[in-house]
Design a binder for these strands. Sequence first.
RNA 1: GGCGACGUACCCAAGUGGCUAAGGGAGCGGUCUGCAAAACCGCCAUUCGCCGGUUCGAAUCCGGCCGUCGCCUCCA
Length: 485
Amino acid sequence: MRIFNTMTGKVENFEPLENKKVGIYACGVTVYDLCHIGHARSAVVFDVIVRYLRYKGYDVKFVRNFTDIDDKIINRAQKEGISWKEVADKYTNEYYKDMDRLGIARADIEPKATEHMQEMIEIIKALIEKGYAYEVDEGEAKSVYFSVDKFSGYGKLSKKKLEDLIHGARVEVDERKKSPLDFALWKASKPGEPWWESPWGKGRPGWHIECTAMSMKHIGETLDIHGGGADLIFPHHENEIAQSEAYTGKPFAKYWIHNGFVTINKEKMSKSLGNVLNIRDLLEVYDAEALRLFLLSSHYRSPIEFDHEYLKESEAMLDRFYSTSLRIEDLKAFDKGSKKSLTIELKPLVETLKTKFEEAMDDDFNTAKAIGVIFEFIKELNRLMDKKPSSEEEISLIREAEIILRELGGVLNIFHRKAIDWYRDLLHLKRIPLLEEEIEELINERTQARKEKNWHRADEIRNFLLTKGIILEDRPDKTVWKVKI
RNA sequence: GGCGACGUACCCAAGUGGCUAAGGGAGCGGUCUGCAAAACCGCCAUUCGCCGGUUCGAAUCCGGCCGUCGCCUCCA
């Protein structure tokens, strides 16, 4: 397996620190608002990385945190007139609602910053003792800052030079800091703000220290993989490296993985630009599995442009799979003898499917290519079914192929429904103003009309359903309905 | 200003030194069908932003130019 490492800027062979054990830590969300599709992308990417590592036989311990105390949470609480804790709990809950629908598996450990105060305080104390951090008086209490000048490797992840950062002029000047780049490990609390007791009086942790404390507690001093959105490279991950490596003297992570952004009109989706699309709102109109497929249809490091058209295309792709699945379900054996040619053709295709899929995924989690491999195979399956397989042997081989297709889909966590449920779900999602029973009734009436060769009535019914978004397909033995994408 | 990424068909998107440039969507023609739909077959990039260079050979490597975006501030 090969993985692109942000630290070296190269694709490297993946070798965990300890044979098949992999400790992976991904930065989660700050729970102060609903999640947008940028959050969805990051969650989907790391969900697939973990699923694939497990598929490959690695013993994975996956940790993804919640930042549950932070300026944004405090501001939100003041705006809504509720406590910071209520804000954090509410949006943690909303996070799960959205992520569950997207098929994001729970991490093995989902730690919260506020549950690790003691661990953070211990690390900060040690950093002061080692001379990497300093205290600043803030009246009643003290704040603690990390002294960036003391850590020689500062900037190695984001490839930034200290002097460039200082000259960058976008770093705000803060009289309390020795260097404008120094960052807070501990913040003295202002009146009315939440606080925890500490050796420096009442205060709360800075943003970065929680990841150091929680990753070390739950995984160890050196992580196999640390990841998150590309916007976390600087300053968040750079700061994590500084404080963690200063604290342990060991490398903080072996591989750094960062996913690219979701853009709208070619611009990064972000709160400050006001162009965010919530997962919640999108799932009112589009299927969650389609959103997932859309997010996986580009390489995880590339920017991905959002457009309603692209989500429709993803739905069309899924429809193609479920259509094929429905076709397989309807296969019936009626012939004792087998068409040898079909069996001979299918066997090697099934064998290479897995190999090609793994080759794609082994190459820095190339899900776009892997999806290409899957759909190439779907085309072959349909081609073989056009040859009208009729024997037990042929049909069981095709059914077996679908099982493998679904197994590989499982790594991406797609293709998990029964075909009929795909259409039923679309019926509700697309707000088709008909019940399944009503559609069935019309199909029955049409079948009768067709028997009587009353083509006019048959076409009338089919056209009526089409105006409601329902497509009919006449099979040799029955008529099936589908939802128009 | 500093650092970095990207530019492949009508659209999305793989491919990063050598077999016919994956896959999906849209479109067009055909097979099948009462007619459709689905599925399949065929067509749809002799060419990979532009210009040079390296090489027997480049979409892929090097240089320049143009364009788009990102990071340098909270951000997934």
